[in-house]
Design a protein around this nucleic acid. Sequence first.
DNA 1: GCGATCAGTT
DNA 2: CACAACTGATCGC
Length: 431
Amino acid sequence: MENGLISVDRWAKGSSAYFLTHLHSDHTIGLSSSWSYAPLFCSRLTAKLLPFKFPDFDLSLVRILDTGSWHTLSPSPAFPATLHVFAIDACHCPGSIMLVFRGEFGCRLYTGDFRWEPSCEKARKAREMLVDVVKDDVVDVVYLDNTYSNPIYDFPSRQLAANRIIDIISSHPDHDIIIGINTLGKEDLLLQIARALKIKIWVWPERLQTMHLLGFHDIFTTNTTLTRVRAVPQYSFSIDTLEALNTMRPTIGIMPSALPWVKKSLQKGELLSGSFLTSRFKRGRMSENGVQIDKQIGNTGPLDKFHEYIYSVPYSDHSNFAEIEDFIRLVHPATLKGIVSSSSCYIEPMYYFGRLCRVNQPIRRQLHNMHKRVEAVSPKISFGGDNVKSERNKGKNLKGKFLGVRVSKLSIYRRRQRGVKIVEDNSLDQD
DNA sequence: GCGATCAGTT
DNA sequence: CACAACTGATCGC
């Protein structure tokens, strides 16, 4: 397999520069404390958090990409090309960025994981920044966070979901509250809860350290006697946990996640015809006045009750279908590639968004026609993880058949790694 | 011990 | 069932 000049969220040897969009573990497969192949570019906040995840990481490799300005890598023995890169807040988790690259290969945008809601001020600013960056150029390729690039995925803004969660908590004034979170992300949700209910929030000790690194000093605590709201690792959040807790004190759990809600719709057989939840949230989104709608949503019945003690609220850090569509319309790239391909609901992004691309239109470069396209002798860039099924998996599947075990077709495609390889058109390396 | 991969969990 | 994100077991070195 070819290695490119640069890699994004991909940590195999062979590139001259590596880019990290954010610190979730599905984007750091292959990265470790002892990794040292080449300089690593990331946001300031990611750089700050990096040693916490990888304690002995060689920090002399780290290069900060502040958002809002171009950074240039000039030719040198270590980096044999000129590359311009621009980082923009992806609003996915603290430190997350999307990246615009300009080089011999043209202009390419790697979204990383992102959520840009129209109602989010930070996202609006990021969006303006992107408009400014690409306004005089054509984006040749968008590498897209296509996690939910299927119209069946429709869920409300994080603001609406947060309000729903706050309502659930305030309607259980005598209950302890457990909220499942991961090692990074959903801080805004917890902040809003703390602010709205004027309470502190318990987190586990490592998470408190993260909160301190993120600059939150007075909101979180590791002292259970100071608050009835606790954010716990999602991994330790289960029906059993909640049932055990309820033998001690009345406790409810809240799962801030988009998917159980999809599941619920599926169970009701309403998914394909448009679920009641979908239409409910659509009404909310179409309204001009978000605040009033918040209350409407918040006051609706226990539609998100998942279990006797558990509520599931569709709080997602990935863009929903409508937001992705809006994003593609905005960027209007020549073509698109998904960075996730393991989903059973996966549909080639061009299927839905191809009409928003320029593939069938004349591509006219304007100001930044920096170069002619050189016939690539070899791929110049290789981004992200590859999403090609491995020989090993194929073998495993065959074995399954041989033993008469019914192996899910999906298992062949199971890939946890995120990201994509970027190579020159028509020069895809074969595995 | 380390990294890579697989299996399994919410 | 699925998803993203994570933990833990296992294998090879």
